Amino acid sequence: MCRHLPACPVASSSDAEVARIVASHPEQGWNLLCNGLLVFDDTGQLLPDGRVVDPHRLELIAV
């Protein structure tokens, strides 16, 4: 889906979240990236093939 240069990383790569946003819906809590990845505010993801990536936000633990 990415048509600019340099091309964004594919949705299955470890750095997929750096792709450009092509549709932003902050009121619904998600962005569509040019590589087809849906990224949610809770850090969860939906890959173009339908696979789900669970939220991976790091939580700080008070000691």
Rank of each mutant, 00 (worst) to 15 (best):
M1N: 12
M1A: 15
M1P: 09
M1Q: 14
C2F: 03
C2M: 02
H4I: 14
H4C: 15
H4W: 07
H4T: 14
L5A: 15
L5P: 04
L5D: 15
P6E: 01
P6Y: 03
A7P: 05
A7V: 05
C8V: 03
P9C: 07
V10F: 04
V10D: 09
V10K: 11
A11L: 03
S12P: 00
S12R: 02
S13F: 01
S13H: 03
S14M: 02
S14R: 02
S14G: 00
A16C: 12
A16N: 13
A16Y: 00
E17T: 11
E17G: 02
E17R: 12
V18D: 01
V18N: 02
V18S: 08
V18G: 00
A19F: 02
A19P: 05
R20V: 05
R20K: 15
R20T: 06
R20P: 03
I21D: 01
V22S: 06
V22K: 13
A23E: 15
A23F: 09
A23N: 11
S24H: 09
S24G: 10
S24C: 09
S24L: 07
H25A: 13
H25D: 13
P26N: 06
P26E: 06
E27R: 12
E27Y: 06
E27D: 13
Q28P: 00
Q28Y: 05
Q28L: 11
Q28F: 03
Q28K: 12
Q28S: 08
Q28N: 08
Q28T: 04
G29I: 09
G29D: 07
W30I: 01
W30C: 00
N31S: 13
N31T: 11
L32F: 07
L32M: 15
L32V: 12
L32S: 09
L33V: 07
L33Q: 08
C34A: 08
C34V: 05
C34N: 09
C34S: 08
N35T: 07
N35G: 06
G36M: 14
L37W: 02
L37N: 01
L37Q: 02
L37I: 06
L37H: 05
L38H: 12
L38C: 07
L38F: 12
L38Q: 11
F40R: 14
F40G: 00
F40A: 06
F40Y: 15
D41F: 08
D41A: 15
D41R: 13
D42M: 03
D42K: 04
D42T: 02
T43C: 10
T43H: 10
G44T: 08
G44L: 02
Q45H: 10
Q45F: 01
L46H: 01
L46D: 00
L46P: 01
L47Q: 13
P48D: 10
P48C: 14
P48S: 11
D49F: 08
G50M: 05
G50K: 04
G50Y: 05
R51V: 02
R51S: 10
V52C: 04
V53D: 02
V53Y: 01
D54Y: 05
D54I: 03
D54R: 11
P55R: 10
P55G: 11
P55K: 10
H56S: 12
H56G: 12
H56F: 04
R57Q: 13
L58P: 03
L58S: 11
L58D: 06
L58E: 13
L58K: 12
E59W: 04
E59K: 07
E59A: 11
L60K: 06
I61S: 12
I61Y: 08
A62Y: 10
V63D: 13
V63G: 12
